[in-house]
Design a protein around this nucleic acid. Structure first.
Length: 875
DNA sequence: TGCCCCACGC
DNA sequence: GACGTACGTGGGGCAC
């Protein structure tokens, strides 16, 4: 039985990590980002590969034997930044703690050490895995040698075997050096044949297999220019080949035996991690778990009866529910924590206790909770109205930093250094294994959370204050969560019969289309599988493959649309996709979540998720019900009022983001456009194309609309070029023209980016915050994405703030004016209500007033409305 | 179970 | 030059 050997290209991985991660340093001011990235990769490798032999190879310094061949080898390369060089000794210390061998050899590169050991090991029958970021290493791939190259970041890798190499690059491992010989490598200053890139090189190698064959039969090369270039640069090509060939007989002063690896002492690594400030990695150290962390001690009192003295003015309240969906899952426990202690009850106990119910309904008794909406709705289902919820740890944590993806009590506690509290997953299990534990375990866990919540509250309060987010928290998100809870609890009536009829009709049509597709294809296959569809279209039917994905041919709609004229099957597939989507997601999916008892759908709005401040919606997602295509739009016919004589009423902001942009930038022209009530896309078109508004045709308006869309969503020139189907250059000219026409917008964007760079975050009108750690990244792509986010988030986030405030104001007005109308849904810039038909006129006035004046911007906010017997008819 | 591809909304 | 590109949710296929 062979061994399992892992060889790591130390320089390459450290380099990758350094450029992929922001320039972190620890509390001693020592840079650690490369070490950190390297370590995450290392931990992943140890987990995935469980090697019994291991080595990290490093480059040995400036010159190598290759410089004798070619003095300019690696010339012109940027000097290693000192911030990175200083991390190598740290990294080697850490490897020592892991008890992983590392090695370097004078005059040789890490590649050569790896090549030499890999060849020796595979001859011995070992399984070898090579980890690097350098494609040169691919020449080592064989039946026993797998090469894993970092792709994006450090832990995301592509795995290469002979088969996958052939598939991805269309060549054999042995041809890699020939490939490089022809195309060269600018990063190592390897010349290759000038004018020959990867595409040409692959083509040539497909024809000739090797460099020798190519030069023996140069006449067979098609293209005069190419022939000349090859002829003239023969020497360079052969020298390049020599340079990129990895030495497999390097004079190593070590043997394979020396690489044997048998794990590490957890304590040694832990110590290093603590020195480096890698607290988030501590939990990934094996043995770490066994080392019992001292749990927070909690004295949970389980009482027969609930008495007044347990129910104080300020009490942390935990309602424990095992499943995500609180509309359907039962309450497992109710736990209180306050100055009198921690008390646990069953749901039956609280439902029967008049004392508890009176306390719950008393708004002067302040309850602090985690996830107020969940808590209130769950109680409501049990017939217990809950008032006086004044602090939600979830919402507070979200406002303080929306980028954090886990705001639950154990996670927040961990971040504040309190590790003595296990996560829900650790206590209840996950997936199929999740279940209710023994009563005492359940109560103890909920008790710990209640106790921690009580402590966390003041910490979060401080952070809100520091960020000037108290108003946002207490007067926006907290009141809103109550309203959202009511909307969810109310639910939306669904006409299931209608959905079923639509489903039957679709089924028939899908079957017919399916038949026709099979006829066109000449065989039956799974149309829903891109993996099967790709070869049918691009091999069997010989259609041109315009785009590829990581795993094969792209069959995305935008690709297929370009092929529409080439073959009749294309339109059939597009239609099949369109109808199939309606069937699976919107007909079957919706029917699945209609509540048995109420005949309604009860979505859950996630108020603590998006990075911009928008809501999201799940089970079902009511924010992506089709509207664009008529066929899909009919799904909306199944959303109906819950009572006879009522109608669905929809009200949406017109161009809210662009109005926000006008306000925030102060651009006079943009402001005037809105004041004058102009058609904004036509106006933009006339500006961008330099014509009068009357001269703007439909296509110009369409393009201008995409530009406005791009401005609002912060897409790049590339994104705009994709949506317009023009070149990137053309897209960029549109963007430039836009900024030239609206100079204050450009100024505002630049200011926002500058400020984000300085402060590390951007803010909305109501002080919602988003941190942008990549703002100063040296990685071009990351920095660019961060800059676009900086420009976009204040706009989208402010729009989100505004509609949230409108909802609060509207809820209040509906009560004041004694209207029965009820809010049902929010879809980012629109509100959907149900309302008795006789109230429509009154409601129209109120909704318009509230939504248009919930904030006063320098431009008017405009609201359109409509109503009808179904959501479809409210158009 | 987790990832990929695809598709729906704003 | 940078080769990947708003924010979300969900379904089906597929490899493990």
């Amino acid at each position: 039985m062979g061994n399992k050997l892992v060889l790591i290209d130390g320089n390459s991985i450290a380099y990758r990590a350094f450029f992929a991660l922001p320039l972190l340093n620890n509390d001693k001011g020592v840079y650690t980002n490369a070490v950190y990235g390297f370590t995450t990769m290392l931990l992943k490798i140890l987990e995935e590969e469980s090697p019994d032999h291991m080595l990290v190879a490093f480059d040995a310094g400036k010159t190598t034997f290759r410089h004798k061949t070619y003095e300019e080898y690696k010339g012109g390369r940027q000097k290693t930044p000192p911030e990175l060089s200083e991390q190598f000794p740290v990294l080697q210390d850490l490897l020592d703690a892991f008890e992983i061998k590392h090695y370097q050899l004078d005059q040789y590169e890490a590649d050569d050490i790896i090549g030499t050991l890999a060849r020796e090991a595979e001859q011995r029958g070992d399984e070898v895995t090579v980890i690097s970021g350098d494609k040169d290493l691919l020449q080592l791939v064989s039946e026993r040698v797998t090469v894993r190259l970092t792709k994006k970041g450090i832990t995301d890798v592509d795995t290469y075997t002979p088969a996958s190499l052939k598939e991805k690059m269309e060549i054999e491992p042995s041809q890699i050096i020939h490939l490089k010989a022809l195309m060269g490598d600018s990063s190592d200053n390897i010349p290759g044949v000038p004018g020959v890139g990867e595409k040409t090189a692959v083509k040539l190698l497909k024809q000739f297999e090797t460099l020798d064959n190519l030069y023996e039969d140069l006449e067979a090369v098609s293209g005069k220019k190419l022939k000349e270039k090859l002829e003239a640069n023969k020497e360079e090509a052969y020298m390049s080949k020599e340079l990129v060939t990895i030495e497999i007989n390097a004079p190593l002063q070590m043997t394979l035996q020396d690489t044997s690896y048998s794990g590490y002492e957890a304590s040694a690594v832990k110590e290093q991690f603590q020195n480096l400030g890698f607290s988030s990695l501590l939990s990934r150290i094996e043995g770490h778990k066994e080392e019992e962390v001292e749990m927070i001690s909690v004295d949970v009192k389980i009482e027969e009866t609930i008495t007044e003295d347990m129910l104080m003015d300020e009490t942390a309240l935990i309602v424990e529910i095992l499943e995500d969906n609180y509309h359907t899952s039962p309450i497992e426990a109710v736990v209180l924590s306050n100055e009198k202690g921690v008390f646990a009850f069953s749901v039956e106990q609280v439902m029967e206790s008049e004392i508890f119910k009176a306390w719950a309904a008393d708004s002067s008794k302040h309850k602090w909770v985690f996830d107020a909406k969940r808590t209130v709705v769950a109680f409501k289902r049990c017939g217990i109205p809950l008032e006086g919820v004044t602090f939600d740890v979830l919402l507070a944590s979200y406002l303080v930093n929306p980028a954090v993806n886990n705001h639950d009590i154990p996670a927040i506690s961990h971040r504040l250094g309190e590790t003595g509290i296990p996560s829900d997953e650790e206590v209840y299990g996950k997936g199929a294994k999740r279940g209710r534990p023994e009563e005492d375990v359940l109560y103890e866990h909920a008790g710990r959370k209640a106790l921690m919540l009580y402590r966390l509250k003041s910490n979060l309060e401080d952070q809100l204050k520091q960020n000037k987010q108290e108003d946002l928290f207490y007067n926006l998100e907290m009141p809103l969560t109550v309203i959202l809870g009511e909307m969810e609890h109310t639910g939306v009536r669904v006409d299931t019969d209608r959905l079923k009829r639509m489903g039957e009709e679709l089924e028939g049509r899908l079957a017919e289309i399916e038949k026709r597709i099979y006829e066109h294809a000449g065989e039956e296959f799974n149309i829903n599988s891109p993996k099967q569809l790709g070869p049918i279209l691009f091999e069997k039917l010989g259609l041109p493959a315009l785009k590829k994905t990581k795993t094969g041919y792209s069959t995305a709609a935008d690709v297929l649309e370009q092929l529409s004229d080439e073959h009749e099957i294309i339109d059939e597939i597009l239609l099949y996709r369109q109808l199939g989507k309606l069937q699976s997601t919107y007909i079957e999916g919706l029917l699945k979540v209609v509540h048995k008892d109420t005949g309604k759908v009860h979505t859950r709005f996630n108020q603590a998720l998006t990075q911009t401040g928008r809501l999201s919606s799940t089970d079902p997602n009511l924010q992506n019900i089709p509207i664009r295509l008529e066929e899909g739009r009919k799904i909306r016919q199944a959303f109906i009022p819950s009572e006879a004589g009522w109608v669905i009423f929809a009200s949406d902001y017109s161009q809210i983001e662009l109005r926000v942009l006008a306000h925030m930038s102060g651009d006079e022209k943009l402001i005037q456009s809105f004041k004058d009530g102009e058609d904004i896309h036509t106006k933009t078109a006339s500006e961008v194309f330099g014509v009068s508004p009357e001269e703007v045709n439909a296509d110009m308006r369409r393009q201008a609309k995409a530009v406005n869309f791009g401005i609002v969503y912060g897409i790049s020139d590339y994104g705009l070029s994709q949506s317009l189907g023009v070149t990137r250059k053309a897209a960029q000219t549109y963007i430039d023209a836009y900024f030239k026409s609206y100079p204050k917008v450009k100024e505002y964007m630049d200011d926002t980016v500058r400020q984000a760079k300085e402060e590390g975050f951007v803010e909305t009108l109501m002080n919602r915050r988003r941190y942008l750690p990549d703002m100063n990244s040296r990685n071009f792509n990351r920095r660019n994405a961060a800059e676009r986010t900086a420009m976009n988030t204040p706009i989208q986030g402010t729009a989100a703030d505004i509609i949230k405030k409108a909802m609060i104001d509207l809820a209040e007005r509906l009560t004041q004016e004694d209207l029965e109308a009820t809010m049902l849904m929010q879809v980012h810039d629109e509100l959907i209500l149900e309302v008795p038909e006789k109230e429509v006129e009154h409601l129209t006035k109120v909704v318009k007033e509230v939504m248009e004046h919930t904030v006063e911007l320098v431009v008017p906010l405009e609201v359109d409305h409509s109503y009808g017997n179904t959501w479809f008819d409210a158009k």
